[in-house]
Design a protein around this nucleic acid. Structure first.
Lengths: 119, 119
DNA sequence: ACCGGACATCGAGATGTGTCAATATTGATA
DNA sequence: TATCAATATTGACACATCTCGATGTCCGGT
């Protein structure tokens, strides 16, 4: 594997491309964007993201999220990590609890990239 | 694996949900939507889709697409099949050639689901 | 200082995915 | 009909991913 330049999270790089329907996506861009879609391409992570996004105050404690699933605690922790690493979820620790919130522009930029409404 | 009800392609089911940021996605909906994102979550397939979408007349022959990649013919064929099966690409055979075009509303509906601009 | 609870990390097993070479299928053409 | 070119399918392999139990870490309370 050749080392690329992961200085930005996938979420940060997604804002800089014109819609996929407008002009052919470069190989580079595709490689940078796909991890973001890969992070979303799991039923559990999709629901986690949706739960956090639609939660009161826009943030949710891990303890809130666990209850919605019939999965072990490490598994939920793993999925949250994936969403966090690509930049979709922000993370803040308060006391013993960890809160996640959706990175504001993330989904919008991705939607623009796919749907072609944005730049 | 329990059999669900795949009477509709993922693309067809995606239009019926409110944005993920609006209310928690049901487990069912998440399971139906994730295959669509999974299909997109590969650099090669992202580029294939983009190539088809931005091609003249909105459609492209497989022979056109192969050239853009340093991959074997079966591999490209496989990726096109994945995109076709989830309903992102339509397929039409003319003579010996096979042409693919983007299912019109597919990306827009997905963008609406993610970005929350749609219903 | 100790303990308990919230969350993360580790290691392992089962399953899924991307890729290729080989082969099959289909349609045009000689 | 025989053959060639375009695309699909099959079988196999390496690698990634999802999940869990066990364990580690960090913080608050007693």
């Amino acid at each position: 594997m050749s080392k690329s330049l992961p200085l930005l999270t996938p979420v940060e790089t997604v804002a800089c491309c014109s819609p996929v329907t407008r002009e052919p996506l470069s190989a580079d861009a595709a490689v940078r964007i796909s991890p973001l879609l890969k992070a979303l391409a799991d039923p559990v992570r999709l629901r986690l993201l949706s739960l956090v996004a639609s939660h009161a105050d826009g943030e949710a404690c891990v303890c809130d999220l666990q209850e919605a699933f019939d999965l072990s605690q490490p598994t939920i922790s793993h999925h949250l990590k994936v969403l966090h690493e690509v930049g979709l979820l922000e993370r803040s620790k308060r006391g013993v609890w960890v809160y996640y919130r959706v990175q504001p522009a993330a989904l919008g930029d991705l939607a623009a990239l796919l749907g072609g409404v944005g730049a």
